[in-house]
Design a protein around this nucleic acid. Sequence first.
DNA 1: TAGTGGTCTAGACCACTCC
DNA 2: GAGTGGTCTAGACCACTAA
Lengths: 274, 274
Amino acid sequence: MLDTTFDALPTDGALRRHAMERSGEGQAGSGRADSGRAGAVGFRPLYRQVYDTLLKRLADAVWQPGQVLPSEGQLAAELGVSQGTVRKALDALTADSLLVRRQGRGTFVADHDDKQSVFRFLKLRPDGDGTGMPTSRVTGIAEATASADERGRLDLVRSARVVRIERVRAVDATLCVVETISVPAGLFPGIAQIELPNTLYSLYATRYGITIATANERLKAVAIGPREAELLQVPAGTPALEIDRVAIDLEERPVEWRLSTCLTQDIHYLSVLR
Amino acid sequence: MLDTTFDALPTDGALRRHAMERSGEGQAGSGRADSGRAGAVGFRPLYRQVYDTLLKRLADAVWQPGQVLPSEGQLAAELGVSQGTVRKALDALTADSLLVRRQGRGTFVADHDDKQSVFRFLKLRPDGDGTGMPTSRVTGIAEATASADERGRLDLVRSARVVRIERVRAVDATLCVVETISVPAGLFPGIAQIELPNTLYSLYATRYGITIATANERLKAVAIGPREAELLQVPAGTPALEIDRVAIDLEERPVEWRLSTCLTQDIHYLSVLR
DNA sequence: TAGTGGTCTAGACCACTCC
DNA sequence: GAGTGGTCTAGACCACTAA
């Protein structure tokens, strides 16, 4: 069914799970390949399969960030489902921040680089007014064998190699963050030799085809260490906010570990609970 | 239209905005009362009006937490719209955590007291395993004239009265939080005389008809003050996570200010970014 | 077995954008 | 005016729950 490759216009009914099995003619072709409706096992709705199909194409970078997708009608015809079903899948992908829909224009691949998306994974905001736009300066970059922490966070084997990036960041020109970023060297070949942009996640997407889908952050209050104190020019022991982030990609792999130490004299971490 | 009171079965077509105006017969009755479709002003979809109508009923506590709503079909008939439109409104309310839908059973008003909802506004988790269930002990409660901070957070006038609650909390039996909660005295009459439950928000809902819809939290790392240090039995100056929360109700009023000071030796604040 | 929410379809029309 | 996403409807059937 939807798990297989697609012809331009598959045989009518190839995906009509409910409709076909109704009259007992549902066994033709790949009629009940993957959803296992016959037994008591999980039922997978059609729009979910469309979702997974489109997700895979996004993961495989079939469409680039910022690019427009085919229209709802075209996708529906190609996949052999109704427009409403495609719409439900597209809406879900939009809710997951992977697509952006614009009435009258089309459906686009979300771009980590645009103004709105910068703050999707950056929750540090200035206390006062200010835009909160971040800047960065790399203070060190090196490849090494993964530490125990890195292996645990990134789900790596014992001898795996990682690239470590240390940088300091400012919010509205106020220097306040030092962070160490670890990524598996195998996933990001040559990253140690590149001029790194301010928004790493757009680099991951465009150069390495790795799209960050979610990130889990664990926050603690700590006394700042000597290295961070020196870089941020404050006394060692100053209270600081430590953000321990693991970023997950579309294939649900942990692909980046980031440990940020933040001074919160003039900024705060914003969390909106719904 | 939907802004007025409802008859059991309103005149057919009362809400058919698109359908009626199509053939030029759309002026009958309250045909274009509130959406102003004629001009260039905002277009309000039907399901949005249904959403607002149901939201108002929830705010007015027409249905109590945990209670079941009428079925989709009944609501559709009552409001004079299609079942699909009602469904879209119900889905949106569910996405906003105000309703819970259970296939085969019905649609229920979300209950702040049940197991899942406890953690909607509590992001502190144990570092290790543990369930993270919180407990509380009130250490002080008093009514007073609102301070400048309280007036700012709760949008109060100069002479307004507030009730302040101080309590300590434990996560998995580890004492780690002291918090000061301020609420407008006028909104919560008699709250200073009640035995306070562990989950305050269910009390707000059931006793005062105030449903918390969202909360904005600002996090900082601070050196713990003497009062908090004494209550938590740690040295003054220990780094602590300070959570400054303003809770907003269904009518978008700020109704509670809560300042929590948390020791993060054995717990962390969990933030999931999507 | 009846009733509920969940899925899927088909078709019409509306709002918006761009040529 | 053509093309896109957005809304709304009507009706069928599926999955789940409880009596």
